[in-house]
């Protein structure tokens, strides 16, 4: 297992290198790194920036210089804010990671429960109900659902019951001056986590159901039943455990996409995460942030792929990682 992980990590280096090359080329071809200075009244401003940042060199040369600095920990400065890019990305990663973690945790539990229940009670009224609900959940756009939740669970109760403040908050992850894991944090988490989770639960519960149905139809489950193993034990110890492997693979792969894919939720709930950083950088054509940002997301995808493989092997003894 350790050798497999090490080998996968080594293999991921050229993958990320190729990704960085493609991203660097694509971003530089799409955006003008000195666009912001082109309207400056200082006629030397553009030339000065070009010389300072080595933009007068060939693209491969620029890439090599950037890569060398990037690998050495110097991720450059944002053309928008002048801040250190590494620090910007690290600061943005933390809120996104929190939001993604709680959303995945909630969605995984709910999706597994719904999936198992729907599979065990296939074609029952509850199964049809959850199936219908899943389709609704999949089709709910975050920008709309988030605002509906705010209205239903925060603004509505406050106005209806004349409360001094809403029961749930929706600005950031903490109130001003607060930090840590406390009631304030939980009151901030509920709405954005619910917004992200709804689509995840809807999608993942379908996978969980399908995977569970396969497991329930397998020979070992039939054998267990024939031997008189209690129904609860058959479902949870035999079928559910074996259906978990493909389910968790999907979870791991989708989780990686959350690192860069929470733009709308972060925008609505004013969470200063990766999505908002990307949005702001894209709007101002900040190539010095966009390339490292994309590379970090690519690395997260590679990492989650690896975790998915490892998880699969841990959950399914028939799989051996070599």
């Amino acid at each position: 297992m350790v050798r497999y992980v090490l080998r996968r990590l080594v293999v991921s280096v050229p993958v990320l290198l190729i990704a960085s090359m493609v991203l660097f080329w694509a971003v530089r071809k799409t955006f003008d790194p000195v666009a912001k200075l082109r309207q400056s009244q200082d006629p030397q401003a553009v030339q000065r920036a070009i010389e300072q940042q080595g933009l007068d060199r060939s693209l491969p040369e620029q890439y090599w210089l950037w890569l060398r600095a990037f690998a050495g920990g110097d991720w450059g400065s944002s053309s928008r804010t002048g801040e250190d890019v590494r620090s910007m990305i690290v600061h943005a990663l933390w809120p996104t990671a929190q939001l993604a973690f709680w959303s995945i945790a909630v969605a995984t539990v709910l999706a597994a429960l719904v999936g198992v229940y729907s599979a065990v009670r296939q074609y029952s009224g509850a199964d049809h109900f959850f199936t219908g609900l899943a389709y609704v959940g999949i089709s709910l756009p975050a920008f709309w659902f988030g605002l509906v939740l705010i209205d239903l669970l925060a603004v509505g109760p406050r106005q209806r019951f004349g409360l001094a403040e809403p029961p749930l908050y929706f600005i950031g992850l903490h109130s001003n001056g607060q930090s840590g894991f406390d009631l304030d944090y939980l009151r901030h988490l509920v709405l954005p986590v619910a917004t992200v989770s709804i689509t995840l639960v809807a999608t993942w519960s379908r996978f969980a159901r399908s995977s569970m149905l396969d497991a329930l139809a397998s020979d070992y489950v039939r054998t267990a039943r024939a031997k008189g193993v209690p129904r609860r034990r058959v479902i949870w110890r035999h079928a559910a455990r074996n259906s978990a492997a493909p389910f968790l693979t999907v979870v791991a792969l989708d989780a990686a996409l959350l690192i860069g894919g929470l733009v709308v939720t972060e925008q609505i709930f004013a969470i200063p995460g990766m999505g908002r950083l990307f949005f702001a950088s894209l709007g101002s054509g900040d190539v010095f942030v966009l390339v490292p940002w994309m590379l970090v997301v690519a690395a997260a995808i590679v990492l989650c792929n690896l975790l998915a493989d490892i998880g699969y092997a841990l959950l399914d003894p028939r799989v051996r990682l070599r």
């Binding site: 605002l147 705010i150 925060a154 406050r158 106005q159 403040e165 929706f170 600005i171 609505i268 004013a270």
Partner: peptide, 14 residues
């Protein structure tokens, strides 16, 4: 940054 959410924040007293 989101105008709709900002209005809700005003209505909610945040």
């Amino acid at each position: 940054p989101d105008t709709s959410a900002a209005f809700q924040a005003l209505k909610s007293g945040q």
